[in-house]
Design a binder for these strands. Structure first.
Length: 849
RNA sequence: GGGCGCUUAGCUCAGGGGGAGAGCGCUUCCUUGACACGGAAGAGGUCAGAGGUUCAAAUCCUCUAGCGCCCACCA
C-alpha cells in the first residue's frame, strides 16, 4: 500500500501515458480467436488541419466501448488510421508550399522543398511524384500532432496498429477491390453525363453533392411553334442553356399542351427546331408546365434525354465556360445558323452566371422574354467542397453499379445494429434516394490511381472497352509509371501502344475499405479471419451516406456480409450558442487548452456524459464537475485506504445494505454499457459514488475509527475497500488516469486489464436490504437540515431526534442506529410507529468557543 | 416537399402511465480527525401548445408551433 499524502491530478497524463506505452497495456494480441476479439473500425481523421473538440467527444465515445470490452475480457482490436488521401490534402499542399501538380512533368529526385515556401508567388509546377512526396511530408507532421493529442486524451489505441489511406497497403487494397468489381461486372467504364465541378474540374459522386439555397431568377420565354400557329411559354432559371435545348417537355396528362405534343418549336435566338415531347416527370404545377430539356442543365435533363432518346448538343466546357457557335454543322441544325452563331458569340467564353445575364439581354432585345425575370431562392447542387454550382458534363468515368442493389442494401441496413436506433433511418433514406451509379473516377493527382491501361489503336485512340488489367500480385501499380504486360515503356502514348488511365479513385473507394485495410485483407489472411466482419464502426451522422454506405456496399459486394455489426453514431459538438462547431464558422475550441485547464479525465467526463446521436453543447462547466469528481476519487480513496483498522468480515447490516445497493448499480451499469448507453453508466456510477462519500462514509466513519470495537470497524473497512475496488473499475473507462493512479496505490497490474465488476463480487450482500442504507441516510440528512437551518456547525449535538415511521422502516433504522447517532452527534434517538413519516430534531447548545 | 430528432428549473441535461428530478448557477450556513480544488442546506418548474385514450398523462395517440439534422428531379 503506497498512498500519497497529497494526491493530485497534475502529471497523471504524462506519467501513465508513458507507462501504458512502455507496458504495451493496449497492445492487441492476435493469437485470440474471432469470438474472443472485439474489433473496432476506428475512423481515420483527415490529416489536414487540426483536431477540435468534436473529435475529442466522438473518439472518447469509442474509447469508452474499447475499455469496457477489454475489461469484459475481450481482446480489443483498436487501430488508428490517418486519412491523408484525397482533395483536402491536395489543396493544403498547394497552399502550404505554393505548388501545383503538372502530371506531364517528369519526377525530379533532387527536388528541394526549402526554396518553395512562397505561397504568395505564382504556384510552381511540379511533377506528380514530387507532389505526392510533399503530401506525405506534410501529412506526416499532422499525424504526429494528432497522435499526441489522442494519447493525451487517453485513447486506448494500439499505436502499433496504424495505417494511412495513401500507403501501399491501402492502395493495394483499393486497387484489388476495384479489379474484383471489374471482374464481377460490378464496375464499368462509360462516357456518360456526370455531375462535374468546373473549378476542380473533376467528376463528383451523388454522395458528395449538397443542396444550397441560392439566388436565381426565373424567366419566361416564348418558344415559337414552327408552323407559326403560336408559341409555348417555358420558364427557366438557366436561359444560357437555350443553345443546348433539344426538346420541350410537358406532362402527358396536361390537357393544356396535349394537342402540341409531337409538334416542333423553334428555340429563341438560335432558331433550332426541337420537338415537343411528353414525360411523366414534367410537373404541370411547376412554371408554365412546359420545360426546356437541355444537354444538360440538371439530372432530370439526363433522365429525359436518356429515356426519350434525344440528341445531345453540349455547350458547356469542362471549365464551365460556353463554347463557340457551331450552328449549321451536323447535329447543330438551325433555320438561321448565322443569327444563331451571332447570338452565341455573346456567350462564348463566359461562365454560366455571366452568360445568363448576357442572354437575358439578347432575349429581351429579340422580344422573346415574357414579362420581367423573377428573382427566386432555390436549391442548387454544389460539390460539398466547391464554390460554383455543379454542371452536368459528359466524360469518361468508371462507375460502380449501385442502382439495382437497393433491396439488398436496405436489407444490410436492417441487419445492422444502430446506436441510437433511429440513425438507421438516415441510411435507409439515402439508399432509397439513390439515383446514379457511384461515379468512381476523379480527375485529380493525389490519390489511388486506377490500375488500368488502354490499348491504343493505329490512330492513337484508346480502346476503352478492353482495358488491360494487372495481376493482383503486382499491386499497387501506377499506370502512369508502370508498363502493362506485353508492352515496352517506349510504347506509351504511341499508336498501337498503350496509355494509362489518368484518373485517381474517389477517396471513398479507399475509405470504404477501412476494415479490410486495418485487418490486412489478403495480405494477412490469418489476421483478417480473426477480425472481419468487425464489431463496431463509430462515426459521425453526417457521413452515413458516404463512409458508412460505401463500406457496407463494398463488403456486400466483396464478402457478402456486413463490414461490421454495430454502428455507433456520435452527435456534433455545439458551441455555447448552440451552433455546430466547424472550422469555417471560426468557433472551434482548441482541445489542448481545454486539457490544460481541466485535465484529460475531466474532458472525458464531459464527453462521456453526452449520449450517442445527440448533439452536445461544449460546456466547460461540465468539465469542472469532472475535475471535481476526479479529485474526490483521489481523496475518498486516500481516506478509505488510510484507515488503520484491519479489514474483517462484513457483517454490519449497513455495510451489507450499501453493498447490496452497489450490486444493483453493477447490474444496471453493465446492461447499459451493453446497450451502448455510456452516459447512463456514468450517471449510475457517479450517483452511487456521491452517495457513498456523502452518506455512507459519514455514517460509518466513527465505527471505522473503532468506536464499536475492531470487529465492527473491520466490517466497515472491508466494505469500503470492496466498494472502492468495484467503483474504480466502473469508473475506469471514463476516467482512465485517476482510476489507474488509485489502483496503483494498492493493487498489482493495470486497472485497464482488470475484470469488469461482476454483481457476484457483492454476493456477500445476498439477501441484504438496501433500504437500511436509505433509511439511515434519510435520517442523517434530516438532522443535517436542522443544523443548516439553525446555522450551526454540524458538530453541534442533537439532543433528541424523534423518528416517526412504519414499523418496517423503523426496524431497518434500528440496524444502523448506532452509526446514525454518531454521524449526527445525536444524544437520544427515539422512534415511534406512525402512518405519517416525520423526523423531529431538537438541537442542543453549541459548544462554547 | 418527405423523413428523423428535440422542446422538462436561470443554464446543461436525465426521466418516460401513479410522488416533478440531477448537476451547475443563485441564496444561507459550516474551516467536523479524506477532501476549502471541500462540506451541509434552501429557494426555483402550467414538463412547448391544443385535443384524445385512461381510474390516472411530463410519459401513450393525434394535431399545431418553434428549433436542429437528414433526404428530395435546379423548369
Amino acid at each position: 500500500m503506497n498512498v500519497p499524502d497529497e494526491p493530485s491530478l497534475e502529471g497523471l497524463e504524462a506519467a501513465w501515458g508513458e507507462r501504458w506505452e512502455a507496458d504495451g497495456t493496449y497492445r492487441f494480441d492476435r493469437s485470440k480467436t474471432r469470438e474472443q476479439i472485439f474489433a473496432i473500425d476506428t475512423p481515420p481523421p483527415t490529416a489536414s488541419g487540426s483536431l477540435h473538440v468534436g473529435h475529442v467527444m466522438s473518439y472518447t465515445h469509442t474509447d469508452l466501448v474499447a475499455r469496457y470490452k477489454r475489461m469484459r475480457g475481450f481482446e480489443v482490436f483498436y487501430p488508428m488510421g490517418w486519412d491523408d488521401n484525397g482533395l483536402p490534402t491536395e489543396r493544403r499542399v498547394q497552399n502550404y508550399f505554393g505548388v501545383r501538380c503538372d502530371p506531364s512533368l517528369p519526377f525530379d529526385p533532387a527536388f528541394d522543398v526549402s526554396g518553395l515556401q512562397r505561397p504568395d508567388d505564382h504556384p510552381v509546377a511540379i511533377s506528380r511524384g514530387n507532389f505526392i512526396q510533399l503530401c506525405e511530408q506534410l501529412t506526416a507532421e499532422d499525424e504526429k500532432a494528432y497522435e499526441s493529442l489522442f494519447r493525451l486524451l487517453g485513447l486506448s489505441v494500439d499505436w502499433t496498429q496504424t495505417y494511412t489511406t495513401i500507403s501501399d497497403v491501402s492502395r493495394r487494397a483499393s486497387q484489388r477491390a476495384f479489379l474484383r468489381l471489374v471482374g464481377r461486372g460490378q464496375a464499368y467504364t462509360a462516357e456518360a453525363p456526370t455531375m462535374w465541378d468546373v473549378d476542380f474540374q473533376t467528376a463528383v459522386a451523388q454522395a458528395e453533392i449538397e443542396d444550397r439555397e441560392t439566388e436565381g431568377t426565373y424567366q419566361r420565354i416564348a418558344f415559337d411553334l414552327q408552323d407559326g400557329s403560336g408559341s409555348i411559354q417555358v420558364e427557366t432559371s438557366r436561359p444560357e442553356l437555350i443553345p443546348a435545348c433539344v426538346a420541350v417537355v410537358v406532362n402527358p396528362s396536361d390537357e393544356r399542351y396535349a394537342p402540341l405534343v409531337g409538334s416542333t418549336v423553334l428555340t429563341p435566338l438560335f432558331r433550332v427546331p426541337v420537338p415537343v415531347v411528353a414525360h411523366a416527370l414534367a410537373d404541370p404545377d411547376k412554371g408554365t408546365g412546359a420545360a426546356q430539356i437541355c444537354t444538360f442543365g440538371d439530372v432530370t435533363d439526363v433522365v429525359w434525354w436518356r429515356e426519350l432518346g434525344l440528341p445531345a448538343r453540349v455547350v458547356i466546357r469542362r471549365d464551365g465556360t460556353l463554347i463557340e457557335g457551331r450552328f449549321g454543322e451536323p447535329g447543330w441544325e438551325s433555320i438561321d445558323p448565322e443569327a444563331a452563331n451571332a447570338a452565341m458569340t455573346v456567350l462564348t467564353g463566359k461562365g454560366a452566371k455571366q452568360a445568363r445575364r448576357a442572354i437575358v439581354e439578347s432575349l429581351r432585345e429579340g422580344g422573346w422574354l415574357t414579362g420581367e425575370p423573377e428573382p427566386v431562392r432555390h436549391a442548387v447542387k454544389f460539390y460539398e467542397n466547391g464554390s460554383r454550382p455543379l454542371e452536368v458534363i459528359t466524360s469518361r468515368q468508371w462507375f460502380v453499379r449501385t442502382l439495382q442493389l437497393e433491396e439488398e442494401l436496405l436489407a444490410r441496413g436492417r441487419e445492422m445494429h444502430w446506436h441510437p436506433g433511429f440513425m438507421g433511418a438516415r441510411y435507409t433514406s439515402w439508399v432509397e434516394g439513390l439515383n446514379q451509379d457511384w461515379a468512381l473516377s476523379r480527375q485529380r493527382y493525389y490519390g489511388v490511381p486506377f490500375p488500368v491501361w488502354y490499348r491504343l489503336d493505329a490512330d492513337g485512340e484508346p480502346a476503352y472497352d478492353t482495358p488491360i488489367l494487372p495481376e493482383e500480385s503486382v499491386l499497387p501499380i501506377d499506370p502512369q509509371a508502370d508498363t502493362p504486360p506485353g508492352f515496352r515503356a517506349e510504347q506509351r502514348g504511341e499508336p498501337n501502344g498503350f496509355t494509362g488511365d489518368p484518373d485517381v479513385m474517389d477517396t471513398w473507394a479507399t475509405s470504404s475499405l477501412t476494415p479490410q485495410i486495418a485487418g490486412r485483407w489478403e495480405d494477412d489472411p490469418d489476421l483478417f479471419g480473426r477480425l472481419f466482419p468487425m464489431d463496431l464502426r463509430p462515426q459521425a451522422h453526417e457521413i452515413i451516406r458516404t463512409w458508412l454506405f460505401y463500406t457496407v456496399l463494398k463488403a456486400h459486394l466483396e464478402h457478402g456480409s456486413l463490414p461490421f455489426t454495430h454502428a455507433a453514431i456520435s452527435g456534433f459538438v455545439l458551441d455555447p450558442d448552440r451552433k455546430k462547431m466547424s472550422k469555417s464558422k471560426g468557433n472551434v475550441v482548441v482541445p489542448t487548452e481545454v486539457f490544460e485547464r481541466h485535465s484529460a479525465d475531466a474532458v472525458r467526463y464531459w464527453a462521456g456524459s453526452a449520449r450517442l446521436g445527440v448533439d452536445a453543447t461544449f460546456d466547460e462547466q461540465q468539465m469542472k464537475i469532472g475535475r471535481k469528481l476526479a479529485i474526490k476519487i483521489l481523496n475518498a480513496s486516500r481516506f478509505t485506504l488510510g484507515m488503520e483498522a484491519e479489514p474483517g468480515s462484513i457483517t454490519d447490516p449497513l455495510d451489507l445494505a450499501m453493498l447490496a445497493s452497489l450490486r444493483e448499480v453493477v447490474r444496471d451499469a453493465t446492461a447499459a454499457f451493453d446497450d451502448y448507453e455510456h452516459a447512463k453508466v456514468l450517471d449510475l456510477v457517479e450517483r452511487f459514488f456521491w452517495r457513498l462519500t456523502d452518506d455512507y462514509l459519514e455514517l460509518v466513519k466513527q465505527r471505522a475509527y473503532g468506536a464499536h470495537g475492531p470487529a465492527r470497524a473491520g466490517s466497515a473497512v472491508a466494505a469500503l475497500r470492496l466498494a472502492l475496488d468495484v467503483l474504480l473499475r466502473l469508473f475506469a473507462p471514463f476516467l482512465p488516469y485517476v482510476t489507474e493512479e488509485v489502483w496503483s496505490w494498492w493493487k498489482e497490474g493495470t486497472i485497464h486489464r482488470a475484470t469488469w465488476p461482476d454483481a457476484d463480487e457483492m454476493a456477500i450482500a445476498d439477501g441484504a436490504d438496501p433500504e437500511v442504507f436509505d433509511v439511515a441516510a434519510t435520517v442523517l440528512s434530516a438532522i443535517r437540515k436542522e443544523k443548516a437551518l439553525a446555522k450551526v456547525s454540524l458538530r453541534v449535538p442533537a439532543d433528541r431526534v424523534r423518528v416517526r415511521d412504519t414499523a418496517e422502516r423503523l426496524a431497518k433504522l434500528a440496524l444502523a442506529a448506532a452509526d446514525v447517532r454518531e454521524a449526527g452527534n445525536v444524544v437520544s434517538l427515539e422512534t415511534e410507529e406512525a402512518s405519517e413519516a416525520s423526523i423531529e430534531t431538537v438541537l442542543g447548545a453549541p459548544e462554547p468557543a
